[in-house]
């Protein structure tokens, strides 16, 4: 494989691509990753190993949350250290809605009574809307800052959510909120591990398609320009602020939807989903996979969860080895798994 050749010809992410075809190295790796994630759980399901199907759902949802974060970090250059806020909010929407549906009490009694719901469609819609609103508020303030200040202010907002969830007793506080019956969809049985996996997989594919579509649009080109050189964008008569804000909101919506599904997968939501470790893990996954690579989050999530499962089974100090691997990747393998599998894409 001629590395220098691929790297010089490779396009900037988001700028119009010269006919990215499925049969080149990158296309093959992407299809291979998706096929691996889809076919291995299918095969294991029919061999009767439910556990691996649920593990695959976990990988899928974490990948989806990271796809959302990648839109902000990788394509938008907005280093959010607080995406756990949206992941957790999505989770709490699912948890709180199910809690009230289970008890037949309204979520809000005043001014209009809003009942709880155990329908996934309602929950997804609510999670997307609420995460969008939250991101609009947080983004509007945070995007006034840049650099380290942006990293820290997004962290601060996530910590605010974390401490609020921790100390507010109604929904379990520190203890978290169990979802006793998985939320449902019309016509299908969401309790079946494979069905639920396919729902998650569908979500991941949709969010990948959405990201790809956005980045090929004029909006995507503007976002890329805002990342690379916002003065030039401004001289072209486009203000970078609203472009970034919209991308930030969409990014939060994707992560929030993943969070809602993640709560249903675990049957449980707790402030852990909002903690800065969660934000850090999502960032780690984006980096592991390769920043600003469409399929990077998927590769990163696969590697991360497998490492967690395999190392966690071998030693109780697995986080030490995770740290070493991570350090190695940051210092020496700048382009992540996708850079290694599919060749470099960006000029450094």
């Amino acid at each position: 494989m001629n590395k220098s050749n691929t790297s010089t010809l490779a396009p900037q992410p988001g700028l119009p691509t010269p006919a990215a075809s499925w049969y080149d190295r990158k296309g093959l790796v992407q299809i291979g990753l998706l096929a691996f994630l889809l076919l291995v759980p299918l095969a294991l399901y029919f061999l009767g190993h439910i556990y691996y199907v649920n593990l695959a759902s976990r990988i899928t949802l974490i990948a989806m949350a990271a796809v959302g974060l990648n839109l902000a970090i990788g394509y938008g250059g907005m280093i959010s250290f607080g995406h756990a806020a949206y992941f957790g909010l999505g989770g709490y929407v699912a948890g709180i809605s199910a809690y009230h549906a289970f008890d037949f009490t309204p979520v809000i009694g005043w001014p209009v009574a809003i009942p709880g719901s155990d329908s996934m469609l309602v929950i997804w819609l609510a999670a997307i809307l609420l995460c969008g609103l939250l991101a609009l508020a947080i983004g509007a303030i945070s995007l006034r800052t840049t650099g380290v200040y942006f990293i820290m202010i997004t962290l601060a907002f996530a910590q605010m959510m974390y401490y609020f969830a921790n100390s507010w007793p109604t929904y379990g506080g520190e203890d978290g909120l169990p979802i006793f019956l998985r939320n449902g969809l019309p016509w299908v049985d969401t309790n079946d591990a494979l069905t639920f996996f396919l729902i998650c997989f569908g979500g991941l594919v949709l969010s990948l398609a959405l990201t790809s579509r956005i980045m090929k649009s004029r909006f995507g080109a503007a976002l890329t320009m805002a990342r690379l050189n916002d003065t030039r964008l401004a001289t072209a008569g486009v203000s970078p602020y609203p472009i970034r804000l919209v991308a930030f909101v969409i990014s939060a919506m994707i992560t929030g939807l993943a969070g809602a599904l993640y709560a249903d997968l675990n049957g449980f939501v707790s402030p852990t989903m909002l903690s800065w470790h969660m934000s850090g893990e999502l960032m780690v996954i984006v980096i592991l996979g390769g920043v600003g690579r469409l399929y990077g989050p998927l590769a990163g999530a696969l590697l991360f969860v497998m490492m967690e499962t395999l190392l966690g089974g071998m030693t109780e100090y697995w986080q030490l080895f995770l740290g070493l691997v991570l350090l190695f990747v940051v210092l020496f393998a700048k382009h992540g798994v996708m850079g290694w599998l599919a060749g470099r894409e960006r000029h450094e």
Binding site: F81, G280, V284, G323, L327
Partner: peptide, 12 residues
């Protein structure tokens, strides 16, 4: 971004 991640790894 790299600094955040490398030092996050150092914490672990």
């Amino acid at each position: 971004l790299d600094q955040v991640l490398a030092t996050f790894a150092l914490i672990l």
